[in-house]
């Protein structure tokens, strides 16, 4: 698939009637969501509302029970779809960083480049160092993850995802495991990504980030999208009682 053939106005992600159950527990009860290129969508909601499950469904870390998910027009719920190919285009950042502890920072960034994209070591190293520079950690290339702070680990995780040249990035509560003083450096990197036009789907508790960086805010509760709209409006003037109740408790 060559990049110039992608219609830049086509939806990057289309979620249609997504249902997900774990046993008897229905976590997502019919989600419809369209993400267009360059959007920064923040998803908020109480724990257990299904927001992480929604995010993880978009790259099939959770297998949907019902409904369809299209990524750049490709139905990833179709069993014939080569999910590994689609996942290369979707960067994923986890709450718990999930860096590979047996590899140095540079090796973390080059592993998938070399084994999946078949880039040469020289090329992969060059791209890795460029991405490390973008997240401000050029001097940590030879360090091991366990020697980095949580904030640094999460920035490395973002750089690792960026090395694959993704079309979109998924963030699953990227700052929730961090000490408060380390949250800012990660949000800073995410903000610069958004400024460069990256399509982003962010599950977060950072209302400030949602207000200032988000182009759309989604409030989820009980497996439904309860309310969505311009972040400033939703945060200042929530319409639905459950949104009002949630925001009154977190703000």
């Amino acid at each position: 698939m060559s990049t110039d053939l992608i219609d830049i106005h086509a939806p990057v992600i289309e979620v249609q009637g997504l249902v997900k159950s774990f046993g008897d527990n229905e976590v997502l009860k019919g989600i419809d969501l369209t993400v267009t290129r360059g959007e920064v969508i923040c998803v908020i909601g109480p724990s257990g509302s299904g927001k992480s499950t929604l995010l993880r469904s978009v790259n099939l870390l959770e297998e949907p029970t019902g409904g369809r998910i299209l990524v750049e027009g490709i139905d990833i719920t179709d069993p014939d779809t080569d999910i590994d190919r689609v996942r290369r285009r979707i960067g994923m950042v986890f709450q718990s960083f999930n860096l590979f502890p047996h590899l140095s920072v540079l090796e973390n960034l080059t592993l998938a480049q070399r084994r999946v994209l078949k880039r040469s070591k020289t090329e992969a190293d060059e791209i890795a160092r460029e991405m490390l520079g973008r997240v401000g950690l050029s001097e940590k290339a030879d360090a091991y993850p366990s020697h980095l702070s949580g904030g640094q680990q999460q920035r490395v995780a973002i750089a690792r995802a960026l090395c694959m040249n993704p079309d979109m990035m998924l963030f699953d509560e990227p700052t929730s495991a961090l000490d408060p003083e380390l949250v800012g450096e990660v949000l800073q990197v995410m903000r610069s990504l958004a400024d460069e036009g990256m399509t982003m789907l962010v599950v977060t508790h950072e209302m400030g980030f949602a207000r200032e960086v988000g182009s759309r805010l989604i409030f989820m509760d009980g497996g439904h999208i309860v309310e969505q709209g311009d972040p400033r409006e939703v945060l200042a003037n929530p319409q639905h009682p459950r949104t009002q109740d949630f925001l009154s408790r977190v703000l």
Partner: peptide, 25 residues
Amino acid sequence: KGQSEAARSLGMSPMKTMFWVILPQ
């Protein structure tokens, strides 16, 4: 589990994930 999820999210196949990420650890 997060280790294989991270590797799969980077587009690595189950085999490559096992060989390069899970087995060494």
